[in-house]
């Protein structure tokens, strides 16, 4: 509740909004004092007070709706209390938490057969994977980057592209510094494929890769990743 200015002449704007509760006798002491004092000097509020008293009287004498007897109504509630709560499946429970309004928004434009067809489709989608037999050895006809396997040799192989203006002696020196053997290259994209001996540790290979990337003459340096063919996977 807000504090009210004590002056009866400066509180009109606050008092006029308190008058409804002056009429129902619920104002607290400070509010009551301010309103009482203001009413002594304000004709507008006196008139409003008269109107509000008529309004209060009208509300109090307005009829209530005719409803069932409380005994009968409570019997219905008691029946509800004694009905054990249903144990819906998780999927159904999630839907049932929607408000009736939300359901209307979601399904309001769908006819009953359409809703049933949708429900049947969802049920099939959930059930079919569980009842159909599946053998993981079947594999799949499609492979993507996300399920690709790295060639076993890739861990010891790099692919490098040098700038076109790299002098042959510089190129030779760079390749020699990697301490890897040149397997292929340059191909049509000017790419060299380098391969390290099997006994070279992975950290050393990564260090060589980092050195290549830092060199201004190198425009591309990556491990020699590649996809294993489907026939290779099935043969393993």
């Amino acid at each position: 509740m807000n504090d009210i200015d004590d002056s009866p002449y400066s509180t009109h704007e606050q008092v006029v909004f308190l008058l409804p509760w002056y009429v129902n006798n619920t104002l607290q002491a400070q509010e009551l004092h301010a309103v009482t004092q203001h009413l002594k000097v304000c004709l507008l509020c006196k008139r409003e007070l008269s109107n509000l008293r008529q309004l209060a009287n009208a509300v109090q004498h307005s009829p209530s709706a005719e409803v069932a007897a409380p005994t009968l109504a409570f019997a219905q509630l008691k029946q509800r209390l004694e009905t054990p709560p249903a144990q819906p499946s998780p999927e159904i429970a999630e839907v049932s938490t929607l408000s009736r309004a939300a359901k209307h928004r979601l399904l309001g434009k769908w006819t009953a057969p359409q809703v049933l067809a949708l429900a049947a489709s969802v049920a099939l989608a959930l059930v079919l994977p569980r009842i159909l037999p599946w053998d993981s050895s079947w594999g799949t006809a499609y492979r993507t980057l996300s399920d690709a396997q790295v060639k076993p040799s890739a861990a010891h192989s790099l692919r490098v592209i040098f700038k076109a203006d790299t002098a042959p002696e510089v190129l030779k020196s760079l390749l020699a510094n990697t301490q890897a053997s040149k397997v292929l290259g340059p191909d049509t994209q000017a790419m060299y494929t380098l391969e390290f001996n099997d006994d070279v540790a992975q950290p050393i290979i990564l260090e060589k890769l980092a050195q290549l990337r830092q060199n201004a003459q190198v425009v591309f340096a990556e491990p020699n990743y590649g996809l294993v063919s489907q026939s290779t996977v099935l043969a393993q």
Binding site: M1, P20, W21, V23, N24, N25, T26, Q28, V59
Partner: peptide, 10 residues
């Protein structure tokens, strides 16, 4: 306000 007799804060 007028039937249940509540203060505005209530």
């Amino acid at each position: 306000t007028y039937f249940q007799g509540l203060h505005y804060s209530e």
